[in-house]
């Protein structure tokens, strides 16, 4: 349509010959198809996102000048297929990795993992001593009250963006103790 005088109909003045009109019709249907696809694609991603919920994310506040910290959260999967968290990104750190811990007879070993599984109709906790999103080489000091944008990518291509508040470790502890007391 760009740079042509053809405006919709075959024109006897020959500014729009029938072959050109046909080509335009084809192009129009291609555009329609592309538009439909473009609409459908985010819809399918949205469907994936609706199944995945990130609950109570937070980043642990660390002493000033400390290069690394970690983000914790619970990921709930209400869908019918297993999902895997495969990547996390954040502008506050130079590198972001998924990590797990193992306690081997008292020796705490931290290792990078390629993915964190969230089974269908289940939830996976990223919590202290287990899985965490490690924020490496913090680009700025994280203070209480700040929020850290996190982008989580799953194996089906769906993406969840969350803003994780920075919390003092003792505030987290107290909240955990309070909720533990609440359950008694």
């Amino acid at each position: 349509m760009i740079g042509t005088a053809c405006h919709g109909r075959p024109d006897p003045t020959n500014t729009c010959p029938p072959e050109k009109f046909k080509a335009m019709q084809l192009r129009n249907s291609a555009i329609t198809l592309a538009a439909a696809l473009a609409l459908a694609l985010p819809l399918s991603i949205l469907a994936g996102e609706a199944d995945l919920t990130v609950v109570a994310p937070y980043v642990r506040m660390v002493p000033p000048g400390t290069p690394n910290s970690a983000a914790f959260m619970t990921i709930a999967n209400n869908g019918t297929s297993d999902r895997r968290l495969v990547k996390a990104d954040s502008p506050v750190a130079r590198a972001v990795e998924l990590h797990s811990h193992t306690n081997e007879q008292g020796l705490m070993r931290m290792r990078q993992v390629s993915a964190i599984e969230v089974k269908a109709k289940s939830r996976t906790e990223l919590k202290s001593g287990g899985y965490h999103v490690m924020l490496i080489d913090l680009q700025q000091s994280l203070m209480e009250g700040d929020t850290v944008p996190l982008t989580l990518t799953f194996d089906d291509g769906s993406i969840r963006k969350v803003d994780a508040p920075v919390r003092k470790p003792q505030a987290v502890l107290e909240a955990e103790q309070a909720s533990a007391h609440g359950r008694h």
């Binding site: 642990r60 690394n68 990590h99 811990h101 705490m108 001593g129 490690m134 470790p169 003792q170 502890l173």
Partner: peptide, 20 residues
Amino acid sequence: YTYCPDVCPTSLSLLAQALS
């Protein structure tokens, strides 16, 4: 160690909480 992202801050927080 101070580069420790999780285990050490957790342990020190528990210790700090006990002291408090």
